[in-house]
Lab assay of single mutants.
Amino acid sequence: KMTIRVKGKELARRIAKEMKDRNLKVEIHEHGDEVILEIE
């Protein structure tokens, strides 16, 4: 399990899509400006 902190929703969406393309499970937690992606 891996956690990534990202500034900006646009970048977070791009990373999430990339991870889904690799068949990984992604959970997205938004905290205002910061987005936390949990990847399994």
Rank of each mutant, 00 (worst) to 15 (best):
1 K>H: 13
1 K>V: 05
1 K>E: 05
1 K>S: 13
1 K>W: 08
1 K>T: 07
1 K>F: 08
1 K>N: 12
2 M>E: 12
2 M>S: 12
2 M>P: 06
2 M>A: 12
3 T>E: 12
3 T>Y: 09
4 I>M: 04
4 I>A: 03
4 I>L: 03
4 I>F: 02
5 R>D: 05
5 R>T: 14
5 R>Q: 09
5 R>M: 11
5 R>G: 05
5 R>I: 15
5 R>A: 10
6 V>Q: 01
6 V>M: 04
6 V>E: 02
6 V>Y: 01
6 V>G: 02
6 V>D: 02
6 V>N: 01
6 V>A: 03
6 V>W: 00
7 K>A: 09
7 K>L: 11
7 K>C: 15
7 K>Y: 05
7 K>D: 04
7 K>S: 06
7 K>M: 09
7 K>R: 11
7 K>F: 06
7 K>G: 05
8 G>Q: 05
8 G>F: 06
8 G>T: 13
8 G>M: 05
8 G>K: 06
8 G>N: 15
8 G>I: 08
9 K>G: 07
9 K>H: 11
9 K>R: 12
9 K>L: 15
9 K>A: 10
9 K>Y: 04
10 E>V: 03
10 E>W: 06
10 E>A: 08
10 E>N: 08
10 E>S: 07
10 E>Y: 04
10 E>D: 13
10 E>G: 07
11 L>F: 02
11 L>E: 13
11 L>I: 12
11 L>R: 09
11 L>S: 05
11 L>D: 08
12 A>H: 03
12 A>Q: 02
12 A>L: 03
12 A>S: 02
12 A>F: 00
12 A>M: 02
12 A>V: 03
13 R>Q: 14
13 R>C: 15
13 R>M: 14
13 R>F: 07
13 R>K: 13
13 R>V: 13
13 R>G: 11
14 R>V: 12
14 R>F: 04
14 R>I: 13
14 R>Y: 04
14 R>E: 11
14 R>G: 05
14 R>K: 13
14 R>N: 09
14 R>L: 12
14 R>D: 07
15 I>N: 00
15 I>E: 01
15 I>M: 07
15 I>S: 00
15 I>Q: 00
15 I>P: 00
15 I>F: 04
16 A>W: 02
16 A>K: 02
16 A>F: 04
16 A>P: 00
16 A>D: 02
17 K>E: 12
17 K>W: 00
17 K>S: 09
18 E>G: 08
18 E>R: 11
18 E>K: 11
18 E>Q: 10
18 E>N: 08
18 E>Y: 11
19 M>S: 02
19 M>K: 01
19 M>W: 05
19 M>H: 03
19 M>Q: 02
19 M>C: 11
20 K>G: 09
20 K>D: 04
20 K>I: 13
21 D>W: 02
21 D>G: 06
21 D>A: 09
22 R>Q: 09
22 R>A: 10
22 R>D: 04
22 R>P: 02
22 R>V: 04
22 R>I: 08
23 N>L: 06
23 N>A: 06
23 N>Y: 07
23 N>M: 07
23 N>W: 06
24 L>W: 10
24 L>T: 03
24 L>E: 02
24 L>F: 12
24 L>G: 02
24 L>R: 04
25 K>Y: 08
25 K>S: 10
25 K>G: 04
25 K>L: 10
26 V>N: 01
26 V>F: 06
26 V>L: 04
26 V>H: 02
26 V>T: 02
26 V>D: 00
26 V>Q: 01
26 V>E: 00
26 V>Y: 04
27 E>I: 15
27 E>N: 11
27 E>Y: 11
27 E>W: 09
27 E>A: 10
27 E>L: 11
27 E>G: 06
27 E>H: 11
28 I>T: 04
28 I>Y: 06
28 I>V: 09
28 I>W: 14
28 I>L: 09
28 I>H: 02
28 I>F: 08
28 I>D: 00
28 I>E: 03
29 H>N: 06
29 H>R: 12
29 H>A: 05
29 H>S: 10
29 H>M: 11
29 H>L: 11
29 H>K: 12
30 E>I: 13
30 E>M: 13
30 E>P: 04
30 E>N: 08
30 E>D: 10
30 E>A: 10
30 E>G: 06
30 E>T: 10
31 H>I: 14
31 H>D: 14
31 H>C: 15
31 H>W: 14
31 H>M: 13
31 H>L: 14
31 H>R: 13
31 H>A: 12
32 G>T: 03
32 G>L: 07
32 G>P: 05
32 G>Y: 05
32 G>Q: 07
32 G>F: 07
33 D>V: 06
33 D>P: 03
33 D>R: 05
34 E>M: 14
34 E>N: 09
34 E>V: 14
34 E>P: 02
34 E>R: 07
34 E>I: 15
34 E>Q: 10
34 E>H: 12
34 E>T: 12
34 E>A: 08
34 E>D: 10
35 V>D: 01
35 V>L: 09
35 V>F: 15
35 V>A: 04
35 V>T: 09
36 I>H: 05
36 I>C: 13
36 I>L: 06
36 I>E: 03
37 L>W: 01
37 L>S: 01
37 L>K: 01
37 L>E: 00
37 L>G: 00
38 E>C: 14
38 E>Y: 14
38 E>T: 14
38 E>A: 06
38 E>D: 05
38 E>S: 10
38 E>R: 08
38 E>G: 03
38 E>W: 11
38 E>H: 12
39 I>D: 01
39 I>V: 10
39 I>H: 01
39 I>Q: 00
39 I>G: 01
40 E>N: 11
40 E>K: 10
40 E>M: 13
